[in-house]
């Protein structure tokens, strides 16, 4: 069981790299969806079958794997965004930064005073690495939709972290987080739609002209 979990977490990191290196918006969204879907297996795999974990898994799968990607796909179809991601600093530098951040999170999590059963598992480093990927995505990409993707990856990282605490965390908190996310994506989609209608571009650089 442990091996499967570790393998899954590793795949999550590979998908992180793929998202950072990919230039196509559609494949980015699809990858984030796959990542979310995979993560939704984690509660069951890590903590065994129970009502709690099953509910969590199903909720996460529906939202991260199906609903949000569906919304995003719909959004890009509506506003007819070009396929390219438009990075600010180029794909190769982002990839290198991503690797450095991943390496950093692995080394950092080694130094953390974790309890014995967590210190060997990949949850903490992968969670940190995914958070960092989300940040990178937010910082280095230009389009509003990639911002939404960044938030999603960010949330995936938090979700991985949350796995350590699933037993302890009340169901309501988890549900709240997931719902928050959904609402955030909704808002984002609407905002995007509006931006597109006003400026006929999705470039958030343009938003900076709104400052005083």
């Amino acid at each position: 069981m442990d091996n499967t979990v570790n393998f899954l977490l590793l795949l999550v990191i590979l998908l992180n790299f793929f998202i950072l290196g990919s230039s196509r918006l559609v494949s980015c969204i699809r990858t984030v969806a796959i990542q979310g879907g995979m993560l939704s297996l984690l509660p069951v795999l890590a903590h065994g079958f129970s009502g709690h974990t099953l509910f969590l898994a199903a909720g996460a799968f529906l939202l991260k794997g199906i609903a949000i990607p569906f919304l995003l796909f719909k959004a890009i179809r509506q506003v007819r965004i070009r396929r390219e991601v438009e990075p600010l600093i180029g794909y190769v530098p982002t990839l290198i930064l991503g690797t450095l951040a991943t390496a950093g999170s692995f080394i950092f999590s080694d130094r953390l005073p974790l309890i014995a059963e967590h210190s060997q598992s990949l949850f903490v480093p992968v969670g940190l690495a995914t958070l960092a990927t989300g940040f990178l995505m937010l910082i280095t990409r230009r389009k509003a939709i990639t911002q939404a993707l960044g938030y999603l990856i960010f949330e995936n990282g938090i979700f991985v972290f949350g796995m350590l605490l699933t037993e302890a965390m009340p169901l309501m908190v988890e549900t709240g987080v997931l719902l928050d996310l959904l609402v955030a994506v909704f808002v984002m989609a609407i905002v995007m739609h509006q931006i597109n209608r006003e400026f006929s571009t999705m470039n958030i650089d343009k938003l900076s002209s709104l400052k005083e």
Binding site: F17, G21, V92, L95, I96, T99, A103, F106, I107
Partner: peptide
């Protein structure tokens, strides 16, 4: 122009596999 990108990606991937062992 995508080829260098893929190659850098491959080296980063192999570097990452090393990091997995370094812990």
């Amino acid at each position: 122009l995508r080829i260098p990108q893929l190659l850098v990606g491959a080296s980063l991937l192999s570097f990452f596999s090393l990091i997995l062992l370094l812990r």
